[in-house]
């Protein structure tokens, strides 16, 4: 009990006194995970839209693959990206392994299937005749698609949230492709693992609290956005 109690007190003190390392790690975590989420959205939303709206052979199989991808273990993605970026690997010449860029690549790889599958699900919820009606009002294909995405913006907001939540909290891939290098690739999750293994529970709890705070802040923002949307009706 002492360990936990003292740990909490110490953690709050660390955060309040503005411990430089903690804030640097938080900054990197946000930078890596937000970048990865944006990339996953840029790739995943169009793919999800194609899967939701397209009529082609193999659509169901691809949808099943995307759904499976939602449960992709971060360690597997980390392993795959590590092999790709390994010095003797196919992309080894780029020298990206153990850099934040490698972590962004791995986390985007984790989030993209989630975004694809949830985007497809979100668009399925819109009236099946929606695109037809928009085009029937004179919309070009692109404008009709824009109207569809606008119509589904609340579930799509949740898609982004789910993607970000998945990558900000994962530790396996970040550890493998980032290497947890102090001041370079150390993020909240890998830092918490390291601190715990060293018995620095207060520090680990501090990292944990920051992670929770980030998750809470993101959810709060999205919930407010959704509430504002529904309140305007």
């Amino acid at each position: 009990m002492d360990v936990l109690g003292d740990g909490l007190v110490e953690a709050v003190r660390l955060l309040l006194t503005g411990d430089q390392d903690t804030w640097a790690i938080t900054g990197l975590t946000l930078r890596v995970s937000l970048t990865a989420t944006v990339i996953a959205l840029l790739i995943g939303v169009p793919l999800g839209a194609v899967l939701a709206l397209g009529r082609f052979r193999g659509r169901r199989v691809l949808l099943a693959i995307a759904n499976t991808g939602m449960g992709l273990p971060p360690v597997v993605v980390g392993l795959f990206v590590t092999v790709l970026l390994w010095r003797s690997g196919p992309l080894g010449a780029l020298g990206l392994l153990y850099t934040p860029t490698a972590m962004v690549i791995a986390q985007a790889g984790i989030a993209t299937p989630i975004v694809v599958a949830l985007t497809a699900a979100a668009l399925h919820q819109v009236d099946p005749d929606f695109l037809l009606q928009m085009r029937g009002l004179g919309a070009t294909r692109v404008r009709a698609l824009g109207a569809l995405l606008t119509e589904a913006k609340l579930p799509l907001l949740a898609v982004g949230m789910a993607g970000f939540g998945a990558v900000v909290s994962e530790v396996g891939a970040a550890q493998m492709v980032g290497g947890n290098l102090a001041g370079e690739t150390r993020v909240l999750t890998t830092a918490a693992v390291l601190a715990t293994s060293r018995g620095q529970f207060a520090l680990a709890i501090a990292f944990g609290l920051v992670l929770l705070a980030i998750a809470f802040a993101v959810n709060l923002a999205v919930t407010f956005a959704q509430h504002r949307q529904t309140a305007t009706r």
């Binding site: 928009m134 029937g136 009002l137 004179g138």
Partner: peptide, 25 residues
């Protein structure tokens, strides 16, 4: 301009729905 059997309206006010065809153009 087409009116379908089932009215497919957007998640918006009535006025904005009525204006939607023009907006799409």
């Amino acid at each position: 301009a087409a009116v379908l059997q089932r009215p497919v309206l957007q998640r918006a006010t009535v006025l904005d729905n009525a204006a939607a065809g023009l907006r799409l153009r």
